[in-house]
Design a protein around this nucleic acid. Structure first.
Lengths: 223, 223
DNA sequence: TCAAAAGTGTTCGCAATACACCCATGC
DNA sequence: GCATGGGTGTATTGCGAACACTTTTGA
């Protein structure tokens, strides 16, 4: 091998999802550099020669937000020759999920802005980042149905209605309240707390929490 | 970016599956170079600077077999810092599926041998290739249940029993013959031919073929 | 007392499962 | 004629889907 060493530029891009205002949203930053000036892009950056790719994803994410993402998963590696007009860059895409609590977004002078965008109304994106987001949405939908990753999109305590809404928003269809509760509770993933969410002018909703906030595959789930 | 260009060695490894003699088998080559001399490894190699990764996988596969694989899918990118003792090598792993027809295997002076190994009885492997194979087996099992990729593991014409055996071998459990046929035929993916497989000292089995040999997701499948 | 969301059970239909015998052939 | 795998139908069950009213609170 040593006589034929080949090199490529390695990068990582992170599709950070959260649910906000009834929409599945993704975190984007505004590019200033040509040829994508004023377009929006996924947070990400280069992987250092002696840096683990997963850690590079975490680092790049930490440089833009103060979020410790609850969940980070490698998605797919994008290596089309012409995906970056500046030259050959191979990018390992990740998906991150964070709870929809307020998040501090940083910005540096290398970027114009940073913000959450509903995946249903994305701006014009730089590079192949639209493709990455579409891929990530597909993966998220799939995983929602056979794993417990939804825990990473929720705060510590939450109502069953909020839980259901997240499923509905991501899956893109409504679910029957009684069937949803019956089925989800039977999974045994969550337990009721003794607290209730008050404040609306309606009956208070009981707050639940996950027994364990660790990734798990489930036997079955919602079709 | 140009002021901070970073480099990594990019490679690809291919987990080539086939079903042979009642076993799910994977194609391995024998490494001669230190420090993995006499261990077995997945076929693969470096990605050239101006080469698409998928094409690099195809090329590396073609250099070892004369198989045009029916199916090739990117699996996961392995980038642990110490996964290759010779230095930092990031490898994009692929999964290939081929029909269990006889395949010509080539070998070059850079490798000691090449052959098929049952995934249940793997030799000691080089690098992180065992991990890659385990990942690939998981993906294969999953995809078998919600896609039609099994077509790529079968010859043009096949009996229903052979089809069922492949499911049983990969899923690792037996299936009921009547239920299997009822369900698979109801998917409408295959059609009977007018030919029968003779030769055994039993009733000849009707040969079937796939209507389309293109990748498809299925509504549901075997649990 | 009214508006708003919380909470709760039963029925129905279908799809998955379990299960056993006759058929066509080669030897 | 017998051994071998090929081929076929029905009954049961469990799960997902459909569906409506009462409860609790704040204003």
């Amino acid at each position: 091998m040593t006589d034929t060493l080949r090199f490529a530029v390695l990068a990582t891009d992170i599709v950070v999802f959260t649910v906000q205002d009834g929409e599945l949203c993704v975190l984007l930053i505004e590019v200033l550099e040509r040829p994508f000036e004023n377009r929006w892009a996924l947070p990400g950056g280069l992987v250092k020669p002696e840096e683990d790719i997963l850690l590079a994803a975490r680092r790049n994410l930490a440089e833009k937000t103060d979020v410790k993402s609850a969940y980070l998963e490698q998605l797919y590696t994008f290596g089309e020759l012409d995906r970056d007009p500046r030259g050959r860059v191979v990018s390992v895409a990740y998906m991150a999920l964070i709870s929809s609590e307020p998040v501090n977004l940083k910005t540096t002078d290398r970027y114009g802005g940073i913000g959450w965008f509903p995946v249903r109304k994305l701006p014009v994106l730089a590079y192949d980042h639209r493709e990455m987001i579409e891929y990530a949405v597909g993966r998220l939908r799939t995983k929602l149905e056979y794993t417990n990753i939804i825990y990473s999109l929720l705060p510590e305590k939450f109502t069953l209605t909020r839980l259901q809404k997240i499923y509905e928003i991501i899956l893109g269809r409504t679910l029957d309240k009684r069937n949803f509760r019956k089925k989800f509770l039977s999974l045994g993933l969550i337990q009721p707390t003794k607290q209730f969410e008050r404040g609306g002018r309606q009956r208070p909703a009981q707050l639940f929490k996950f027994k364990h906030k660790t990734f798990k595959e489930l036997p079955k789930f919602f079709d």
